[in-house]
Design a protein around this nucleic acid. Structure first.
Lengths: 357, 357
DNA sequence: GAACGTGATGTGACCGTTCACAAAGCGTGG
DNA sequence: CCACGCTTTGTGAACGGTCACATCACGTTC
């Protein structure tokens, strides 16, 4: 028997190294190859792979040896086909180039990997219907078992609720669509930032917001407006930006022509950075002339000039919690968590009391 | 026939909405369901899906109608199993949270999608052998057709050349391992930056490098040293950093205690930012007292204080070219491109001639 | 009108794995 | 000594597609 096994091995080696250079693809070893070489049935090999309890240690070891020797790798496609479980979690994302999403995705990947899942990430470039639909279609055709949505535009959720998604899904945004969401409370964060400026004594506060169709931008604006109203201050129309430092800069140049405010709450750190650049350019000092508060606390924010007061979001934590929520649902538990994480105000040197003139 | 078709449809709907609440999974429609409803054979449906030319328009339309109606989605796993083509390109990456990799990956995804491929991204957290090996194993078990490696540590390539990779692969780093690489010429970029400082008249230039085992860091350091040697200047031992703004800051505080240099070339923009922060803190002005040059040209660099002179890398272009190289190889063409892209020096306000004392 | 080519469609086998079930081996108690 | 249960292993049939080949209808040519 053993001799026979070895014969087979030799035969295979011979063929691949033979002189008749056939261009035929060398078929990757499969479960039956392993079985033959180990002198067991393919089912036994399958059991070893799936760590079935009822398998004799000696047999198991023999199979594992063969697997290592010939470099056998189970074919995921075949596995997915028969179990209709892909061990894959889909991620529908937009603008992965931003700090927040990227950080969350990294954490999601980590958490998923620990649970034996992999990620299938699809990045939708535009927010229009067909792009979103094809993104979701795409992920679903991968037979993903769960879905994480990081696409921060409102429209995405309209599409999602329209297409009937059969897999458990969670979004990292705060929505009122009744779906599971796991997010940092953006409104609370914005209120923290605004409150901070008000507490310092500012009464004329400008808000540079993100794009109008971004959920985060909307929520932060909401928090800003609420807090301003609560303090009975004049409500000013926020500026709608595009998250970029460039926008912050040009908006700043424009705004500073009038300079009828003493503080700015920018909806992210990049725009805050651009705005501060504009301030320097027109000769205003921060926080002497104008206070600035950002949002996100990107790692660079502590080294801006001046170091930026901002709202810290725990992106990795959100990612981890999102996965644990999905995993719970996949196990059939009814997830209770539907949580929001509270952000934290990081006070640095870009904010101070206004100068009394 | 048509009546029969409709009967079937109604039957399916009935069952799912029936009162005998069976918990059985509603099986997703398959190619045979479509065939039955359209009154054709499953092979005909397959032909429609694969856009086979020899199919009557009327039949094709009928099949497509059914597909849309019942929301049929081809099962990728089954397809991958039989064709042993997954239409997937694997990405082995490390530290996806950085600006460069992220930007490249986005471009890669875009280019891959256009060619009908998807991405399977695996992020290895540490650079040790088993982590790398399991990452590659993982991707290969997905039967990826090609591999893009963005993991910038030298060791990754040792592992890669050890495991015999059978699929075409390309790395976004510059290596001498004889594998295909597609990268921005880091050394040239570093020489550009250094040359710029030398041309301004600086003779004592400090280099803050990245971690020693990063290929980019090594190449940039190399470029720096070459140019310094070429100009016959004193060679100083570079500081080995970790890419972070924090490091740049603390390294700066330390370096500035002696202040025996007039210019700094930092291996990325973040460390440059941190260094400039340190300069401000000890009361030095940039570029008055010290010139600073960074590397990467992240979008924020133009709004640092002062706006940072840096080396721009075209990350998206690299990603696109990497994919086109792989696609060519998959088509069986021998790719000629093995290219390096030249980076570009962006001169802003953080560099100037040294003050003659 | 038989032979033939061609466009359109159908049939059986197979890809590599898991599942349900069957069966073999083996000690044990009545 | 045989029925019994337990552990360990083996067998056929899926899963949902594609591929190679067979078949069919239909006009064209000689």
């Amino acid at each position: 028997m053993v001799i026979d096994v070895w014969n087979v091995t030799v035969h295979i080696a011979d063929e691949s190294g033979s002189t008749r250079m056939e261009p035929e693809r060398v078929r990757a070893p499969n479960i039956r190859d392993v079985a033959r070489l180990a002198g067991v049935s393919y089912q036994t090999v399958s059991r070893v792979l799936n760590e079935s309890p009822s398998i004799k240690d000696s047999t198991k070891q023999r199979v594992l040896d063969v697997i290592n020797e010939i470099g056998y790798r189970p074919n995921q496609a075949a596995r997915a086909l028969v179990t209709s479980k892909s061990r894959t979690i889909g991620v529908l994302s937009q603008q992965t180039a931003f700090y927040g999403p990227t950080t969350s995705i990294t954490a999601i990947e980590q958490a998923a990997k620990e649970a034996g899942y992999r990620l299938s990430i699809t990045n939708i470039s535009s927010g229009d219907y067909s792009a979103i639909k094809s993104g979701v279609d795409y992920l679903l055709s991968q037979s993903i078992e769960a879905l994480v949505v990081i696409a921060p535009q409102v429209r995405v959720f309209e599409v999602l609720s329209e297409l009937s998604i059969t897999v458990p899904f969670v979004t990292l945004q705060t929505t009122d669509l009744g779906v599971h969401s796991m997010s940092v409370d953006q409104t609370a964060g914005a209120r923290l930032a605004t409150r901070h400026l008000i507490d310092l004594g500012h009464t004329e506060i400008m808000h540079i917001s993100g794009p109008q169709d971004w959920i985060e931008a909307e929520a932060r604006m909401q928090g800003f407006l609420e807090e301003v109203a609560l303090a009975d201050l004049r409500t000013r129309a926020p500026i709608l930006g595009d998250w970029s430092a460039h926008f912050g800069y040009y908006a700043g140049l424009e705004l500073l022509r009038y300079r009828d405010f003493t503080a700015v709450f920018a909806s992210n750190d990049q725009m805050a950075l651009g705005f501060m650049h504009a301030c320097r350019e027109v000769g205003l000092s921060i926080p002497g002339d104008i206070s600035v508060v950002g949002f996100d606390d990107i790692p660079e924010a502590a080294h801006f000039f001046p170091p930026l007061t901002t709202v810290r979001q725990n992106f990795p934590e959100i990612g981890r919690r999102a996965i644990s929520l999905l995993l719970a649902e996949l196990r059939g538990e009814t997830p209770v968590e539907h949580g929001q994480i509270l952000p934290e105000l990081i006070i640095r040197e870009s904010s101070a009391a206004p100068v009394t003139r």
